[in-house]
Simulated scan of single mutants.
Amino acid sequence: MQTLTEKRVFGAKTGVTDVFVATDAGLAAVTVSADQIGAFGLASREPATAVAATADRLVVGTDDGLLAADIDAGSRAGDVADPAFESIGGDAIGSVAAVDLTPEEIVVADSNGVVYSSEHAGAVAEPPAWEQRGTTDGVRAIDAGLLAATDGVYRIDDDGVTNTGLTDVRAVTGVGQPLAATADGLFRLGNGWQSVADGAFRAVAADGHGHAHAVGEAGLLVRAAEDGAWTTTTPPVEAPVVDLAADRGIVVGVTDDGTLCVTAGDGWRHQRLGLPGARGVAIGGGADGS
Rank of each mutant, 00 (worst) to 15 (best):
V99Y: 12
N112E: 13
G208D: 10
L273V: 06
S44R: 15
A98M: 08
A12G: 00
T5H: 08
V108L: 06
P103I: 08
N191E: 14
T182R: 05
Y154M: 03
G74M: 00
G15L: 14
D24N: 11
V251F: 15
V99S: 03
V9Q: 02
A148S: 14
V252W: 12
W268I: 05
S95A: 15
T54D: 09
V222D: 11
W193P: 03
L273S: 13
T3W: 03
E217T: 13
A246S: 13
R8V: 15
D79N: 07
A121W: 10
V108A: 04
N191C: 01
D110R: 04
R170C: 01
D110V: 08
V32Y: 01
L42K: 11
F40N: 09
F85D: 05
P127I: 05
G78V: 02
V51Q: 09
V196T: 04
D256S: 09
D257K: 06
I93N: 09
G185R: 09
E131P: 00
F201I: 02
R269G: 08
G267K: 03
R45Y: 00
V252R: 05
D151Q: 02
F10H: 14
D198E: 15
V32T: 13
A287K: 06
P128D: 10
T102P: 06
P276T: 14
G145R: 09
T135Y: 01
F40V: 06
A84H: 10
K7G: 08
L101N: 05
F201R: 05
D24I: 02
A181V: 07
L66Q: 11
I106H: 08
G277N: 08
V215E: 12
A144D: 13
A121T: 14
A144G: 02
N163Y: 06
N191S: 15
L67Y: 01
D243V: 04
A53C: 11
R248G: 11
V30Q: 02
K13C: 07
A181F: 01
S195C: 01
A149Y: 03
T182H: 04
A77N: 14
P83C: 10
V99A: 06
V251M: 01
T259C: 04
Y116V: 08
W193Y: 09
L221P: 07
V51C: 03
R272L: 00
G284N: 08
E226Q: 08
L220P: 05
I93Y: 05
V16G: 05
I156D: 12
E238H: 06
W130P: 12
Q177P: 04
A183W: 04
G176M: 06
I71E: 04
V21N: 00
R133H: 00
K13Y: 12
D91I: 10
A29G: 14
V60P: 06
I142A: 06
A229K: 10
R269Y: 10
V254T: 04
G165A: 03
A206C: 12
G280P: 00
A245P: 03
N112Q: 15
V114Y: 00
V204R: 02
D168S: 13
V262A: 05
A203V: 01
V96F: 09
V30M: 02
T173H: 00
A84T: 15
S118C: 14
V96I: 01
G78W: 07
G160D: 12
I250H: 08
A141R: 03
A212T: 12
